[in-house]
């Protein structure tokens, strides 16, 4: 099941550059939350703070509170523990190219010490089914490599890989921006199905996509969260002029 995420006064830096400023918001469990905003506004930095990936960039640090359920991820857990609970999917599908489809999905479990074939088989099948990829690859699980399937399939493979470790939170940073409309629709359907079981945070530049998949949307601008509200409110009647200028395309 998903967990609530409560972010309080989150700040992030790359070296001396202050990139996120006092971001506070509540991301509800078992819903999809979209993050929008112009390039460079800090969306990726923000989601990378939610699984403690931000701090892996050289010179980068973060400060503030991120509660996942009752765990303060910066105080009560190690980055490795957090990344088991928080799956992440990136803009460009990044399967392990030489590994088979099967091994791609099983990689996280193996890393966590699972070896039993029966368990692995089960998880791989369940995850691929969840990611709506099973039917397309079930006959080639160990024959085909992660790189030998289409881009849209690779992205669903990455989602399956993220789901295999049974996370509570799924972070998706522009998961469909490199995909064609049909693959995009599949990813969106997937988000729609998955959000009853996970807390989903999706960064997207596609307003219609945010509108289609997310109950809530946050608008970032220059490292600040300008507005956070139900998606319908953001897209029909935002409170902040800057949000309106951005979503109507009159920015700048």
């Amino acid at each position: 099941m998903g967990v609530d995420i409560r972010v309080e006064n989150l700040n992030a830096w790359y070296g001396p550059v202050h990139t996120l400023h006092d971001v506070s918001l509540h991301i509800p469990a078992n819903h999809a939350t979209a993050l929008i905003g112009p390039s460079g506004c800090g969306k990726s930095t923000f989601v990378r703070c939610l699984n403690r990936m931000h701090e892996t960039s050289p010179g980068a640090r973060a400060d503030g509170t991120v509660l996942m359920g009752d765990i303060d991820i910066y105080k009560d857990a190690t980055p490795v523990e957090i990344r088991r609970r928080v799956g992440m999917v990136f803009q460009r599908p990044n399967p392990f190219p030489t590994m088979s489809i099967y091994d791609n999905v099983a990689s996280g479990l193996k890393l966590n010490g699972f070896r039993k074939k029966r368990v692995l088989d089960e998880v791989v099948e369940r995850s691929l089914k969840q990611a709506a990829l099973w039917d397309e690859v079930k006959d080639d699980l160990k024959k085909k490599s992660g790189a030998s399937i289409s881009g849209g399939q690779q992205q669903r493979l990455c989602i399956a890989r993220a789901l295999a470790v049974d996370p509570e939170v799924l972070l998706m940073d522009e998961p469909a921006s490199a995909l064609d409309p049909v693959s995009t629709a599949k990813i969106e359907d997937l988000i729609f199905k998955l959000k009853s079981q996970y807390t989903i945070v999706i960064v997207t530049h596609n307003m219609q996509q945010a509108a289609r998949v997310a109950e809530n949307t946050g608008f970032f601008l220059m490292g600040k969260l300008v507005e956070f509200a139900p998606t319908t409110k953001i897209f029909t009647n935002p409170s902040d002029k800057r949000t309106e200028d951005y979503i109507t395309g009159r920015f700048g």
Partner: peptide, 9 residues
């Protein structure tokens, strides 16, 4: 044009 917000209204 996929109008939004004030344009949509």
């Amino acid at each position: 044009e996929q109008p939004m917000a004030v344009d949509l209204r």
